[in-house]
């Protein structure tokens, strides 16, 4: 039903477009959109891959004149090769790319742009400004700030916290700096920060060592839900669950479920939705099927998930 109405809408748009002359020809032409993302190496990227496939399926059904090419890459070199292949063999009209790393991808994506294609860059910016037509990203500064503000407002003066950091990247630095800035002047002490690499096992090990090292910890900023799982397991094994709460991040479904159920150890969570890839793909698709302007920057804010609003953030079908 939904599909039919959407198809009608496309047809209608096409008829309306007749008046504009050239626009009509464009709408019925087959358009190919390439989507290049990193492969599913950890929970967040797994969720992102799932949402990418989900959007592509939905959009292909809704707009028969759109065709999608999806490729996933384990490293920058493979991603560059993927994009070159898309240009050479699939003759893409638009590209949605989440760069594995900024530097190595800048020149290849610039080449796509120079060939006159529509370029959407997602989440990790290129190292040169002004290449992309559309930039869609989460807000890393807000991600750290929202978490930091929750710590500031809910801990007493003199409280002690530990922080688990992700894989050393600019993205991780932005989050941690914003978190520290939010705590400034609050008398809350950050005892230690170590890298848990957004990995459950690493976070488990780091947290065990934090627990051995510090007799008093009041709260943990795990900064990622995969790390939060490892952290909570280490705390449970040391029988110190009553003593501290844990804030993860990104909104993993199991964690959101526990917030919904009012788990005292997990009071809130901060979003950094992997579905941001869907926003990017949908907006790029609209560029080819509608007259809506789709250029500029689209920043998705980081929100606080509380037991009251958790239901809106719960996607039981997603793997993340």
């Amino acid at each position: 039903m939904n599909r039919r109405t959407l198809m009608k809408a496309t047809a209608l748009a096409a008829v309306l477009g007749m008046g504009a002359g050239a626009a009509f020809a464009q709408d019925t032409e087959k358009k190919v959109i390439g989507v290049s993302i990193p492969s599913a190496t950890h929970g967040f990227m797994g969720g992102l891959n799932w949402h990418a496939q989900d959007s592509i399926e939905r959009l292909s059904a809704a707009y028969p004149n759109l065709e999608f090419v999806l490729s996933t890459a384990g490293d920058s070199a493979k991603q560059v090769a993927d994009i070159e292949d898309m240009m050479a063999t699939r003759n893409i009209d638009g590209l949605v790319v989440l760069p594995f790393e900024s530097e190595p991808l800048t020149a290849p994506v610039a080449a796509v742009k120079e060939a006159g294609k529509f370029v959407t860059v997602v989440d990790r910016g290129l190292s040169q400004e002004g290449i992309e037509d559309l930039y869609v990203a989460g807000d890393n500064t807000a991600f750290g700030r929202v978490a930091g503000e929750y710590f500031r407002d809910n801990l007493e003066a003199g409280s002690k916290v530990v922080v688990l950091r992700g894989i050393p990247t600019t993205l991780d630095n932005e989050r941690v700096e914003a978190f520290q800035a939010a705590l400034e002047g609050s008398e809350i002490e950050i005892l230690d920060m170590q890298h848990g690499n957004w990995n459950r096992d690493d976070a488990f090990t780091v947290m065990q060592d934090f627990l051995s090292k510090y007799p008093e910890i009041d709260a943990v900023w795990a900064a990622d839900d995969d790390m939060a799982v490892g952290v909570m397991e280490a705390i449970a094994a040391a029988n110190r669950s009553e003593e501290m709460w844990v804030i993860g991040g990104a909104g993993m479904k199991e964690i959101v479920k526990r917030i919904m159920d009012g788990d005292p150890q997990l009071p809130v969570n901060v979003t950094y939705p992997p579905a941001l890839i869907s926003s990017a793909i949908e907006m790029t698709a609209l560029r080819f099927v509608s007259n809506a302007p789709m250029t500029g920057r689209f920043i998705i804010g980081s929100q606080l998930i509380t037991p009251e609003n958790a239901e809106q953030f719960y996607y039981p079908d997603s793997p993340f």
Partner: peptide, 8 residues
């Protein structure tokens, strides 16, 4: 990775 559908 395939069995876990990219997730856990």
């Amino acid at each position: 990775t395939w069995m876990a559908d990219g997730g856990t």
